[in-house]
Amino acid sequence: MLLLCFIASVLLTPLVKKISIKFNITDKPNYRKVHTDLMPRLGGLAIYISFLIGLMLFRPNDPNMIYLVIGSLVIIATGMLDDIYDISPKWKLLGQVVAASIAVSGGFDLEFINLPFGGQLEFGYLSVPLTILWIVGITNAINLIDGLDGLAAGVSSIALITISFMAFLQGDIFVLAIALMVLGSALGFLIYNFYPAKIFMGDTGALFLGYMIALLSLLGFKNITFFSLIIPVIILGVPISDTFFAIIRRLIQKKPLTAPDQFHLHHRLMSSGFSHRQAVLVIYGIAVMFSLAAVIFSMATVWGSLLLLVVLSIIIEIFVEVVGLVSKDYKPILRIMEGRQAQRIQRRKRA
Rank of each mutant, 00 (worst) to 15 (best):
L236G: 01
L236F: 01
G237V: 07
G237F: 03
G237L: 07
G237S: 04
G237K: 06
V238Q: 00
V238E: 00
P239R: 14
P239L: 12
I240R: 02
I240P: 00
S241M: 13
S241D: 06
S241R: 05
D242K: 04
D242A: 03
D242S: 07
D242V: 08
D242M: 04
D242I: 09
D242N: 10
T243Q: 02
T243L: 05
T243V: 02
T243C: 05
F244Y: 10
F244W: 09
F244M: 12
F244E: 05
F245Q: 07
A246K: 03
A246P: 01
I247M: 08
I247C: 02
I247E: 04
I248K: 00
I248H: 01
R249N: 01
R249V: 06
R249G: 04
L251M: 15
I252H: 01
I252V: 09
I252N: 03
I252W: 00
Q253Y: 03
Q253M: 10
K254M: 01
K254R: 08
K254W: 07
K254A: 05
K255P: 07
K255Q: 12
K255R: 14
K255C: 08
P256V: 13
P256F: 00
P256L: 13
P256Q: 10
P256D: 13
P256R: 15
L257R: 14
L257S: 06
L257E: 07
T258E: 11
T258K: 09
T258A: 13
P260C: 05
P260F: 10
D261E: 06
D261P: 05
F263L: 13
H264W: 08
H264I: 00
H264D: 06
H264Y: 13
L265Q: 03
L265F: 12
H266Y: 14
H266N: 12
H267T: 15
R268Q: 14
R268M: 05
R268W: 01
L269S: 11
L269Y: 15
L269N: 15
M270K: 12
M270A: 13
M270W: 09
M270L: 03
S271A: 14
S271I: 14
S271L: 12
S271D: 12
S272L: 14
S272N: 15
S272R: 15
G273F: 14
G273R: 13
G273T: 15
F274N: 12
S275V: 10
H276P: 01
H276Q: 14
R277W: 15
R277Q: 14
R277V: 11
Q278P: 00
Q278H: 14
Q278S: 15
Q278I: 07
A279W: 09
A279V: 02
V280R: 08
L281E: 05
L281N: 05
V282S: 07
V282A: 11
I283D: 00
I283E: 08
I283Y: 06
I283N: 04
Y284Q: 14
Y284G: 04
Y284E: 07
Y284N: 10
G285N: 06
I286E: 06
I286M: 10
I286D: 05
I286N: 08
A287Q: 13
A287M: 08
A287P: 07
V288D: 12
V288T: 11
M289L: 09
M289A: 12
M289I: 14
F290L: 03
S291K: 09
S291Y: 07
A293R: 06
A294N: 04
V295Q: 05
I296V: 04
I296W: 03
I296A: 04
I296C: 03
I296M: 02
F297Q: 02
F297R: 00
F297K: 01
F297V: 02
F297W: 03
